[in-house]
Write a protein that binds this DNA or RNA. Structure first.
Lengths: 153, 153
DNA sequence: GCCATTTAGTTGAGCGTTCAACCATTGCGG
DNA sequence: CCGCAATGGTTGAACGCTCAACTAAATGGC
């Protein structure tokens, strides 16, 4: 016997489409602004942020991929470009000869510092300014639940 | 005098990062599943959905771009591929000689019908199953607010 | 009615992501 | 301590998206 699809009810449908539209529009806007103002896509910005927060401004490629929510391959290509731009440097890992360590250069840090205010302003204007404090709290709980759920499946 | 950046406070920071991680993980998962099971990215699936819901299963390119939250250029490229796959057909617009009309073919409709159950199941499992009914409602309000806010700026 | 502007859509180059294949190294069971 | 699976990372091809430039047709002011 065929398994019946549990279709979305009208409320779920509406929620799903609104979520799609909102998150796509938000990401597109932030990405475009970052590309225009800092010459890099949001994914690269996030890599630089994670590096800047790590001790010694450096991370193993694997850890960086994990932190930035990226695949190994994606990160490899990305770091290659960031290295060509002079914003990141690669070093050999002393404890594991397979390993590579990505290091944020001073120039990379400076670029990040220059890009951050504009980007944060965008996040604030397009996300937080539109929501009440209660909604921000709701969004945090929802997002944390979803992130948790998605990594465990 | 320098304008001070209004940085994110810890709560906002946490919310933003959780939202980023969750929406990225969700989209990546759905995209990968759709690519594997139906041989198309989520953006193409959405184009087919919009066409399937339109009267006569057809829409002007501009309206389709609007409905799918896509740029004209992106849609043009996408429809070119969908046409090559035989899922969509282009027709001249009778009332505006600049216009093009994208028409969902029977084959396109069949492909969509075959892909839909699996995709909906994914949306349900990765999004709605993780949230309480109250959270779904909160997410709808938040998303609608954000979408509204983003299109008006 | 004519010219400038706007609108509709396409195109190609450049870039970022994905996927699968690949190499090197490490860890582990026997 | 040997062989083999698992891990860390890279690579190249294929693909989708963005941006800017472009053609063609419609519109609007005068």
């Amino acid at each position: 016997m065929a398994v019946m699809t549990r279709w979305l009810n009208p409320d779920e449908q509406r929620t799903w489409r609104a979520f799609l539209a909102a998150s796509r529009a938000l990401m597109d806007t932030l990405d475009r602004d970052l590309q225009r103002d800092a010459g890099m896509p949001h994914a690269y910005y996030e890599i630089l942020v994670r590096l800047s927060e790590a001790p010694g401004r450096q991370l193993r490629m694997s850890d960086l991929a994990e932190a930035a929510g990226s695949s190994r391959s994606r990160l490899s290509h990305a770091v290659a470009r960031l290295e060509a731009a002079g914003w990141v440097r690669r070093e050999d890992c002393p404890t594991d000869r397979r390993g590579q360590i990505a290091v944020l250069t001073d120039e990379g840090f400076a670029i990040l510092a220059a890009a951050a205010p504009g980007h944060v302003e965008g996040v604030r204007r397009h996300l937080f300014d539109a929501l009440s404090p209660a909604q921000v709290d709701q969004l945090r709980r929802i997002s944390e639940t979803l992130a948790e759920h998605l990594t465990r499946s």
